[in-house]
Nucleic acid binder design. Structure first.
Length: 520
DNA sequence: ACTGCCGGGGG
DNA sequence: CCCCCGGCAGT
């Protein structure tokens, strides 16, 4: 739902060029602080005129009409984010048009005049605006409020907007594309338009957010957005089995979405952030590397393109004809999109979301090496730290982002070694969410897809990932445990020495207290 | 059923 | 404090 993001981001905060007051021809740059709209109640008489309050370089505030200023663009950064965002929205299917159309629809009200430049002309009429009842009147007053107020207001409005599904004409779409691109570009360079301050100590975490995640303020938990979390997903009677077509399950993925676009598939993470004021500081798109990982059991293939992974799945796992271009969408079930934060990759403990055993390829993959270069911090972390706390800790560095809501995953750290005297490969899984990854020399904290192909194997099911994943993607378990520590996974004195050598136990163990010797 | 360990009790 | 154990909860 990029639409929502766009709604949130407006011209406010954008850098603009304004004519020099001294008339020497050198344009000044400034940042848009507010937009006023000249009253023009009769829609049919023409477009509205906007007046922008611009904070100039020298700190002064000036007002300019839309004719006087030009939106500034940052050529170097513009393409990256835009491109990636478009890519993820259309999921490689090249069906971006409708989305862009909507995009325009939504942002037009916020920043329409700025778009004129790109659109080369005035909009025919604003008749289409009628789809957004509450906004019009509201916007007509008090435009001089602070930016943050405007932002907040906008958020309220945007979350209730009923985004129309109607498609536009080809022409319009083209215009919209251009305009949307420009707006996105300008937005990407505007520092002031960050999400308003939120008190939450967000963690980012991938899982919940990221996938859905992330841990977002709980006040929204009743919105139904989280309803996907349960494996049951009662809201959707027709829970699809993997072979279902991709399109048919999308609505299921976003139960609360009022505009289930066919293409919103991938970025539900963003969707959540837009819908719910997700506090996580948004990372620049260009700092995120998107990879696609095959989640078929015993296959951890990672490819850099959706098309590639789709082909991989289709050919290798689904046994489809090699040259059959047709995709029935089934592949979608067997791969997940992974976002690697290349910014922090090097200095934070590495995380891996999907726990499939690595393939040769993964070993060789530069990114995989990045994960492997764990810090000592991740090392200590690796010691079966699976307390609820650690689950929600912001340790996820790389967000997995599945195409399917039910694949959304909670981060889980997986121990790769233990402190026992066992050999380097000595860790043996003692819990269902743990498994040995001894194949990799440096310890790695796994976060995300809790279900490994090996794991699903244990269930004796030939069916790859989906259902197991669904089971693990439930919201954080209720803290009804009254602070009870989650059960340690490591070896304890009892296990190590046995009942017969009880005198060798640490005192805590003898007293039935939390083990100190093998504490996790 | 097994196991980790919290809470609580006895000395 | 040391020591023990009932009982809960995760596996």
């Amino acid at each position: 739902m990029h639409t929502r993001r766009l709604v949130k981001r407006s011209i406010l905060g954008s850098r603009v060029y304004a004519p020099s007051p001294t008339g020497d021809g050198a344009p000044l740059t400034g940042v848009v602080q507010a937009v006023k709209q000249q009253e023009n109640r009769d829609i049919s008489t023409g477009p509205r005129r906007n007046v922008y309050t611009v904070l100039m370089q020298d700190g002064s505030l000036k007002e300019f009409s839309e004719d006087e200023i030009a939106v500034g663009f940052n050529q170097t950064t513009a393409k990256g984010p835009l491109k990636s965002s478009l890519k993820s929205s259309c999921n490689g299917r090249g069906d971006a048009a409708p989305l862009l159309g909507q995009t325009m629809e939504c942002q037009r009200g916020e920043a329409d005049s700025v778009c004129h430049e790109a659109a080369e002309g005035e909009r025919p009429t604003d008749g289409r605006r009628t789809g957004r009842p509450p906004e019009g009147p509201e916007r007509e007053r008090d435009h001089t409020r602070s930016v943050s107020l405007l932002e907040q207001k906008r958020k309220v409005v945007s979350s209730s907007i009923d985004v129309p599904h109607a498609r536009k004409s080809e022409e319009e779409v083209d215009l919209d594309k251009v305009t949307a691109a420009m707006v996105l570009t300008s937005l990407s360079t505007s520092p002031l338009v960050r999400s308003p301050p939120v008190k939450v100590t967000e963690g980012l975490n991938g899982s919940w957010k990221e996938s859905g995640g992330g841990v977002t303020p709980s006040s929204y938990s009743s919105s139904g957005y989280w309803s996907w979390g349960g494996p049951s997903d009662q809201s959707n009677p027709s829970t699809p089995s993997p072979p279902l077509s991709a399109d048919s399950f999308k609505p299921f993925r976003m139960p609360s979405s009022n505009a289930p676009l066919p293409d919103d598939a991938i970025d539900e993470q963003d969707g959540s952030s837009l819908l719910f004021d997700e506090p996580i500081p948004r990372k620049r798109k260009n700092s995120m590397k998107v990879m696609f990982k095959c989640v078929w059991k015993n296959c951890g293939k990672v490819l850099s393109t959706a098309a590639g992974i789709q082909r991989h799945v289709r050919i290798i796992h689904l046994g489809r004809n090699f040259d059959s271009d047709r995709s029935d969408g089934e592949e979608d079930f067997y791969y997940a999109e992974i976002k690697l934060n290349t910014d922090t990759m090097s200095d934070v403990s590495p995380s891996v979301l999907s726990s499939a055993p690595p393939t040769q390829e993964q070993h060789r993959h530069p990114l995989a090496e990045g994960w492997a270069s764990g810090s000592s911090e991740s090392h200590s972390h690796a010691h079966s730290n699976t307390t609820p706390l650690s689950r929600s800790a912001p340790s996820a560095l790389y967000l997995i982002h599945s195409d399917h809501a039910y694949q959304a995953t909670a981060p889980i750290s997986v121990p790769s070694t233990t402190s026992t005297s066992d050999g380097a490969c000595g860790f043996t899984p003692s819990g269902s969410s743990n498994f040995s990854i001894s194949w990799q020399s440096p310890p790695v904290a796994f976060t995300g897809a809790a279900v490994s192909p090996t794991h699903s194997q244990a269930h004796g099911s030939g069916e790859p990932p989906s259902q197991a994943m669904a089971a693990l993607s439930s919201p954080p378990r209720a803290s009804g445990s009254l602070g009870r520590k989650s059960r340690g996974e490591g070896k304890k004195c009892r296990k190590v020495y046995g009942m017969e050598n009880r005198d060798m136990w640490c005192t805590a163990c003898r007293w039935k207290k939390a083990c100190q010797r093998f504490s996790d």
